[in-house]
Design a protein around this nucleic acid. Structure first.
Lengths: 225, 225
DNA sequence: GCATAGAAAATTTGATCACAAACTCTTGCT
DNA sequence: AGCAAGAGTTTGTGATCAAATTTTCTATGC
């Protein structure tokens, strides 16, 4: 049982680890609908592996907030209500502003170039209406920046926040399209180039607030139905 | 296979969940030496259960930072170096100050009484030199306070920080005893009673700094050997 | 008609075994 | 002596099956 799909370095990697990575990506970038119920057998069959590796991967994903475990032992894709969303966003603001500030101190020219390249890819995705491409680019931009902070522990905590709203964001973007998505990364890039921490914080908060705004809007629409 | 030990409500709770709780407690309050290697078979035999539930519990504990997974697939109790400790402590300051501030707004008289009671238990533990009792009391005090913030997500993140230094703290307390442990909780309690957020932040930062100081001291001693 | 109890199906959970990877200790060579 | 190769042991990984739990379906009574 090898689960070879792409040109990934899956040699020597346990199946449960491969399953974990695959499921996490799908959750993070919207391969599942929020609230969708999943079963061990179902996932195992879908991925073409036995139940055992799926069990370990799912157990891990639950611990990372990427899956929800209910009292009746059933598992589902996270479906965040308004209260939880507020919590996630306030946590994001707290942690990501801190990470960006720390990152700014270690940032060199090469890093800025990398971020510039990612932003270019985001532009392409926005122009072509590639929702998943935008989400991947957005993720890469944020976490490449944060990786410069060398605060591995904080980064892991923030990743465990992102997986919670991934499915939901995809749903929203899928409905509204990428047209009215403003690219806040350019503002952040300018701040990075000029080493302006206040401007960076401002850009980041605007970026986070934009996502929050989308979700609030969508939730209030959903409430009316 | 039931694993009934105390008067715990273990009826209907899966074995892997019981194993998880038991191991987490031991890690958090110093039942293992930092860096100690553990094996699935070993833990299973020790706890009197089969390997399967241990596997699931261990996978979950790894995801929660309560256990370390190494490149060779072996698992061990967290052994934090100086760099990681700095990271954990700066994260603690950031998150716990926020949680305490939010909690202060929702705190009522009954909550303060509960915290007072916990502090009394901490006093007893300190007087009798009961290291584990002190650690449990300290944990309860902090997390009862934070629970008033209703920020479940942030609380979970902070819990995933605490499990990382549990084994190490126990080692340090075990060496130096409880005699020179100053009780910073009284200072926090006063701040809570007078609803003084600045004083609360100050008390909390002092408490966190004290723990940090202990660890730094211990690490610098270890370096000399 | 609707609620409810029981049967049937689906799902999680726990146990056991075979296999593969990693580690350890020994042996043999230079 | 020091190092490398190899056998044996330990440990993680994956597969399969039985048991327990939960859900869904069905039929029966009021």
């Amino acid at each position: 049982m090898t689960l070879q799909s792409a040109a990934a370095p899956d040699v020597g990697v346990p199946v449960h680890e491969q399953v974990y990575r695959q499921l996490r990506e799908r959750i993070l970038f919207g391969g599942f609908l929020p609230g969708k119920a999943v079963t061990l057998r179902g996932l195992a069959e879908e991925l073409g592996v036995s139940a055992m590796p799926v069990r370990e991967a799912v157990r891990r994903l639950i611990a990372e907030n990427a899956l929800e475990l209910h009292g009746n032992r059933r598992v589902s894709i996270p479906d965040v209500c308004g209260k939880i969303i507020d919590e996630i966003w306030s946590a994001r603001r707290l942690l990501e502003v801190e990470l960006a500030s720390e990152a700014l101190e270690n940032l060199n020219e090469k890093d800025i170039q990398v971020l510039q390249d990612i932003d270019d890819q985001i532009d392409v995705a926005l122009k072509t209406g590639d929702v998943e491409g935008y989400m991947r680019g957005n993720y890469e931009f944020h976490f490449y920046l944060y990786s410069r902070s060398r605060s591995e522990i904080l980064i892991k905590l923030v990743k465990n926040l992102w997986v919670q709203f991934g499915p939901f964001m995809r749903l929203i973007y899928g409905r509204s399209g990428t047209a009215n998505l403003e690219d806040r990364h350019k503002q952040a890039l300018e701040a990075l180039k000029s080493r302006d921490q206040n401007a960076l914080t401002e850009a980041l908060e605007a970026d986070i607030a934009q996502g929050m705004g989308f979700i609030r809007e969508s939730l209030s629409l959903a409430d009316k139905t």
